[in-house]
Every structure is written in structure tokens, then in C-alpha cells.
Amino acid sequence: MSLQNIIIKLQEFWSQNGCYIASGYDTEVGAGTMTPDTFFRVLGEKPWKVAFWQPSRRPCDGRYAENPNRVQKHNQFQVILKPTPDNGQILFLNSLNHLGIDIRSHDIKFDEDNWASPSIGAWGVGWQIMCDGLEISQFTYFQQAGGIELNPNSLEITYGLERLAIFLDKRNSIYNLKWGHDISYSELRTKEEKQFSIYNFEIANIDFLRNIFDQYKNEAKKLIESNLYLPAYDYLLKCSHTFNILDARKAISTAERTTLIKTMRDLSSKIAKKYIKDTGKNNE
């Protein structure tokens, strides 16, 4: 099955299960969790069901297109179900079934993996889902976002699309995957992976990045003061991506890491509070 068919199938399945099919976000994010459709919508009391395809950037994971399943930009399929359904695991297994996976012939395991994203003050409890030893999804009961305890809790299911495709297409490497019709993953992505790996690990201008990190941070602060928490959040996302490149460049010491993460967490917490105040659902 091609990658685009997997996306279509997942959209179909989750649409049938009551999700609104959103578009992915257009600012660099490390994971679907960081999109406004997740970060803001898990806050407050209002029920929310969303599913979308989200390209995600992780500069440290770049491998110069030489690793069979690790890349600095991969594709996630993100699902948020709020409040958490009673049958989350079964829904997930049914979605695999919908993709044509015979779940009775494969070793599907819910393996402990508690997820945390300190820079947006978010964490959850759950599992990575292994299929014959391959991690294909994360399954998380969201506990906090922006440092705020969530009530009700949301269930987040994140599929790793490349991993799923490798599995479904019985490939050894993501570069052998088909995206759709005659377009191969390799054709679409090899140059990008090579160039971004060189940039992230070797070339990225550290002084420049430090400088824009500070500017993004200041912009976010100003926007928070003006109650414009949505654009403020965009600048927080830019801080986070800049931080990730600096990290890939090994430019961040342990002590500095703590400070920078705290800076971002504090911003996220202020932004979350503004959102709750604005939408009138105070959970604190």
C-alpha cells in the first residue's frame, strides 16, 4: 500500500469514527502534539475529535538518507479523542484492520512509553505500539498541556506513517516506499534528507540561531501581553524548532538546555492560561 493510500485510509477510518479531518499545521513542529489543533484543543472542557496528517521535523534524527527508517522529517497521522473513549485500544486495533493488517498474525504489543514534551509543558502516559518489533504508533493518555492538568483527558494516537508503510509494503527501507502512483519516497525525499542533515549537523549558523531564538522569544512575550496567544504560540513553535537545530549542532550545554526549555515551558504556560481565560473554561 502506498503512503498516500495509508493517509486516505486513516482519514476514512477516523472520519467514520466521528473525527474532523484537519490539515496539518504550516509551521515546523516536532510532532503532531505541538500543533494548535492539539495543544489548545486538549485544554478546557469542550469535546474535540480531530485527525490529520502532520509532517514533523526532528533535526537530531537526520541520517544523511543513509538509515533505512530514520529521517529528520517524517510524517505523522495524529488523532485526538476528547474525552478519552472507553474503547480506545479497540478503536486503534480496528484502524489497523482497516489498513488491511491481520492483527491475529502479527505480534502487536503495547509497550510502556510515557511521553513528555517539556518545552510545551505537556506529558502523557501510555505506550509505543510495536508491530513485529517495529514501533508503528504512540498511544497516549494526555495528562497535562501548558503545565495545566487536563480535565477531561484526551487520548492521542500518533501513527508513524513511514513505519506503517514499511510494514504494510514489506520494505527494508523507507526509501524503497511508494508515495503514490509512480512517485517514490526516495525521489521525493533523498535530496532533502541529505541537505538538511548536512545543514542541521554541520552548517547551521549557531550565532544566527541563538539570535533568532531570542527574537522569537521576545516576539512571543509581546504577543502574549497583547492577548494574541495564537500568533504567540507560532513563535513558541519557532523557538522550539530553532532549539532543535542548535541541539543537533551540539551547541547546547546541559545547563543551557535546562534554561532554554524552561523559557519555552514558561511561554507555553502563559499562552495556555490566556487561551483558557479567553475561552472561558478555567481548569486551574
Partner: peptide
């Protein structure tokens, strides 16, 4: 390894063979 199902069709061991390949690529990196 240990699987949670009988592996008569060898899906589990085949899958793990592919996965370990990527893991060693990481180690090599």
C-alpha cells in the same frame, strides 16, 4: 525474542529481522 502470539507464518521473526537492521544502522551512525 518473545512474541505474544504463535509465529507459524514467521511474520514476527521476519518483521524483527527487518527492524534490527535499522537499529544496527543507528548504532553504526
Amino acid at each position: 525474542g518473545v512474541s505474544n502470539i504463535p509465529d507459524e507464518k514467521r511474520f514476527v521473526s521476519d518483521g524483527n529481522e527487518k527492524v534490527i537492521h535499522a537499529t544496527f544502522e543507528d548504532a553504526k551512525f
